[in-house]
Every structure is written in structure tokens, then in C-alpha cells.
Nucleic acid binder design. Structure first.
Length: 416
DNA sequence: GGGAAAGGCTTG
DNA sequence: GTACGAGCCTTTCCCA
């Protein structure tokens, strides 16, 4: 019987208290769906079309001929054969033309920047502005994403048809897509985000005092890291130093390598290695935690989250150094990403339970890994602010506080 | 004509 | 040779 097998591997509680109760919560979210403003997207699509036509004409002029801009193969021929620009990186089948490469090439020619612009516009148009309206359900007038519980190996959810977890936010143009996700008349969206949840989990599981103390004091964690790594007082940290520290912090969570960090920071591998050495010198317990986690994974064959969720990693015993390296990065990342996923899922179950128990009309609509989005009747806004923040922040007691940031607004872009 | 692979871009 | 986890789009290739 399944529950006996789960009990034997210590996963019964995870199943009974998190995964199974989550099923009806996800079902409710899928049935609820979310409203998107078709007119707004259609209008934006027409604007994008005009911008694409302009960009296309520009590109043909700079290239000296017409070609299919959507074809990396044809683009590579133009850039690296016709225009003799330097090929910076290879793919399996030819020369890479990705955004990183094009940004470098843009320093020496006008065409690459135009290609980037064209790709940005084409992406927004095809994936979002033109696709989302086709997914509007005729009966509900809303789109109904699927939340997949059995896809991501770390325990995260994924989302499809559409993927509601990669709606643009980083650029002004992209945020116009987000603005088309609108709350029902008489309602507002309430967005609740965990602040720095993965770094807080790293602080907790490693026991690293400098991180734990910084979070307890409510400090800017990247600034604090910069001060330590660069050996300067907190108020002498430059924005550039903070940026380096921020990237380094993420690199550690991702399973750090000097190579990867050097790419992220646009510096030599040697310089990146020096930052890492300095980081680990100042954070010895983080170093110890990472080493311990990999060793344990190698011995047991799997690594675990705080709540016992497992990721099996046979790669850790591979004789192939490349494969083993992958395994080691996955081993350091999975417990952190997976613990965050566990905590968010628990919070979802508890918030849903509270909504039902109190007969509230607010509905949970989306989960984006460390964020929950609710549709809230005007009259319930203050109640929901308090309820959601309390349930999320107190989901589990750690050695550092969990902080949730709230925003309210008429659409998913303008929540503040 | 259709499916799979490749390359690329979006997000946390 | 490399950052961790996903999904969707267009082009290209290959086979029936």
C-alpha cells in the first residue's frame, strides 16, 4: 500500500500534511482562473506589430539584405560570414547568437542591438500579447492555468496553458503584459511575496552567524555581504560592490562555480574565484554546510529539504567529473529551493483553510514560487492583508524571521 | 504534414 | 565545459 511505502521512507507526513491537502487548493485556483483584458492585449499587439515592422526594415538595411530574423542559423550567416563579426561562442550546431553574444557584438556594429530589440518585441507579441487572448475561456471569460504538482524535481509547482509563472516584469514594455491581468469589478489584487526566502533558508540551515544576525537585524543582506567580503564598513559599500555581493549570494544558492560567477559578473574566472574564496572565508559555516550536504548526498544517494522531501542524485557517484559537477550543484541547490517550495505550499494550505473557515469571498488565484496572488472584494482587503501576512510569515519557525511584502492594486502590474 | 530537436527568451 | 528550477515560441530537420 502506498502509505506504508511512504511511511517507510519517512515521507508520509509530507504527503499527508502538504501534498494531499494542496490538491483541492490547486483545483480551486484552476477553476477560479484570472481575468485578462483582451482589448488591452489586442491594442498592445498592434503596437508591437508596428514596432516589429520598423525594426525589421532597420535590420535589413544594416544587414544589406533580407533574411528570416527568427532563424538563428540565417542570422549567424549574416553576422559571422557576411559581416565578419567575431563568433564568440559555439552551440551544438554552429555559432551562438544569444543575447549575451549580441550584447558583446553590439559594441562593434549597429546590427546586433537591433536584433535584440526585434527578439524582445517578437517574444512579447507571440508568447503573450497574441497567445493569452486565445486561452480565454468562453464561459468564464478568464484564463485558467494548470498548476502541475508532479513536474519539478525540487518540489516546486510548475504552471502551463498558460505558464502564469513567467509573465514579464523586468522591463517597462513587458510590464504592459502584466497590466492586462486585471481584478474583477469591485475587487483588488493582493500580492504577497516572501522577501529573500532562499537566502533566509540558507542562513537557517547553515547556521552562519553573519547571515543570521543580518536577517535578525533587518539589514540589507547584499549590502552586509559586500561589507564583509570587501572589508569595508556598511555605509561605505558602493552600489557596484553591492551588486557583486548580490550575484555572489545567488551563485552560492545555485551551486557555485568560479566559471559561472565570472559569467554573471562579467569578469575573469580568476577574479571570480577570489571573490568566492573571500566569501567562504567570511562565511565558514556556509562552506561547511555545502560540503556536508554534498557528502551526505553521495553517501545516501539523495539530499533532503527541511521537511524531508528527497531528491535522488546518482550523479554524485559518477566517475565523469562533468556529470559529478552537475550533481554537486543540484545537491546544494535542491534542499534550499525545495525547502522554500515546502514552506510556500504549507502557507497555501493554511491560508485556504482560513478562507473557508471564515467564509471569506477572497480567492487564491496564482502561485509564482515565492509569491501568492489573491483576488479580494473591496470589503475584505484589510482582513486579507493581516491574514495572509500572518499565515505566510509564521508558516514555520526558523532561526531567522520570514518577511512578507504585500501589495494591493487593480491589476498585476500596479500592486503597491 | 507532423513530431522532435535546437536555439532562444520569459520568469523565480 | 558549468551556474538552480521551469514552459512556450519559431525554425530546422527528418520521416512517412
Amino acid at each position: 500500500m502506498a502509505s506504508r511505502a511512504l511511511r517507510e521512507v519517512g515521507l508520509l507526513e509530507l504527503y499527508e500534511t502538504i501534498e494531499r491537502p494542496l490538491v483541492p487548493v490547486l483545483a480551486h485556483m484552476e477553476r477560479a482562473g484570472i481575468r485578462v483584458d483582451r482589448q488591452r492585449l489586442d491594442e498592445f499587439s498592434r503596437e508591437l506589430e508596428l514596432a516589429l515592422e520598423r525594426a525589421t526594415r532597420d535590420i535589413y538595411v544594416h544587414a544589406g539584405e533580407e533574411f528570416n530574423i527568427g532563424s538563428p542559423k540565417q542570422l549567424a550567416t549574416i553576422l559571422f560570414e557576411k559581416l565578419k563579426l567575431p563568433p564568440l561562442r559555439k552551440t551544438k550546431t554552429g555559432y551562438s547568437t544569444d543575447a549575451d553574444v549580441l550584447e558583446q557584438l553590439a559594441l562593434g556594429h549597429e546590427l546586433p542591438a537591433k536584433i535584440i530589440e526585434h527578439r524582445t518585441l517578437a517574444k512579447l507579441k507571440s508568447t503573450y500579447a497574441d497567445s493569452l487572448p486565445t486561452l480565454i475561456n468562453a464561459r468564464t471569460g478568464r484564463i485558467h492555468p494548470s498548476f502541475n504538482q508532479l513536474v519539478a524535481v525540487t518540489g516546486r509547482l510548475s504552471s502551463s496553458n498558460p505558464n502564469a509563472q513567467n509573465i514579464p516584469i523586468r522591463t517597462e514594455l513587458g510590464r504592459r503584459i502584466r497590466a492586462a491581468f486585471v481584478a474583477e469589478a469591485g475587487h483588488r489584487f493582493l500580492a504577497a511575496d516572501y522577501s529573500q526566502i532562499e537566502l533566509r533558508i540558507l542562513a537557517h540551515v547553515s547556521g552562519e552567524e553573519s547571515l543570521v544576525e543580518a536577517f535578525r537585524r533587518g539589514e540589507d543582506i547584499h549590502r552586509r555581504t559586500a561589507a564583509e567580503v570587501f572589508g569595508v564598513p556598511l555605509d561605505h559599500v558602493t552600489p557596484q560592490q553591492r551588486d557583486v555581493a548580490k550575484t555572489t549570494n545567488f551563485a552560492v544558492i545555485y551551486g557555485v562555480t568560479a566559471f559561472g560567477l565570472s559569467r554573471g559578473l562579467d569578469m575573469t574566472q580568476k577574479q571570480a574565484q577570489e571573490y568566492l574564496n573571500q566569501f567562504f572565508a567570511r562565511h565558514p559555516k556556509v562552506k561547511g554546510y555545502l560540503t556536508r550536504t554534498v557528502a551526505e548526498g553521495r553517501e545516501r544517494g539523495y539530499v533532503s529539504t527541511l521537511l524531508g522531501r528527497r531528491r535522488y542524485l546518482p550523479e554524485l557517484r559518477s566517475g565523469n567529473p562533468n556529470l559529478r559537477g552537475f550533481g554537486e550543484r543540484m545537491a546544494t541547490n535542491a534542499p534550499i529551493q525545495g525547502t522554500a517550495a515546502d514552506l510556500v505550499k504549507i502557507a497555501m494550505v493554511r491560508v485556504a483553510r482560513e478562507l473557508a473557515a471564515r467564509g471569506l469571498r477572497s480567492r487564491m488565484l496564482l502561485q509564482v514560487h515565492d509569491e501568492l496572488l489573491f483576488e479580494v472584494p473591496q470589503a475584505e482587503i484589510e482582513t486579507m492583508r493581516t491574514l495572509v501576512q500572518e499565515k505566510m510569515e509564521n508558516v514555520h519557525s526558523l532561526s531567522v524571521p520570514l518577511l512578507v511584502e504585500l501589495g494591493v492594486g487593480p491589476n498585476w502590474r500596479d500592486v503597491e
